[in-house]
Write a protein that binds this DNA or RNA. Sequence first.
DNA 1: AGGGTGACTGCTA
DNA 2: GTAGCAGCCACCC
Length: 107
Amino acid sequence: MNRQPTAFEQRVYDAIVQIPKGKVTTYKALAEKLNCGSSQAVGQALKRNPNAPEVPCHRVINSQLKIAGYMGKTEGDAVTRKLDLLAAEGVEFDAQGKLSNPACLLV
DNA sequence: AGGGTGACTGCTA
DNA sequence: GTAGCAGCCACCC
């Protein structure tokens, strides 16, 4: 375990860490920032690297403005907790688990 | 060295 | 509005 993150992954984390509190971003926007045409690669970086508090990966959502997954799980308490974290940051979500306030979306 | 997967996205039925 | 298929890049086995 504890495999070393690649340059690409580090870049992803760096971009996420730069996200201000109360704001969220999408995988696509991140991919564009990293000059990577594939958002899936970004998701891979997070899935294979649960950096948790070091990187607020919970501020990263998909194009549907919904939580894609957390801690390597696409559903379950992990995702729910992630939603709660965002709520604590000031990001409002609706009963559907979608971003209720698009103003929090960082572009 | 090669194949398969995925915390995605967009389009079509 | 919901469901299914194809495309995309990077990582893992």
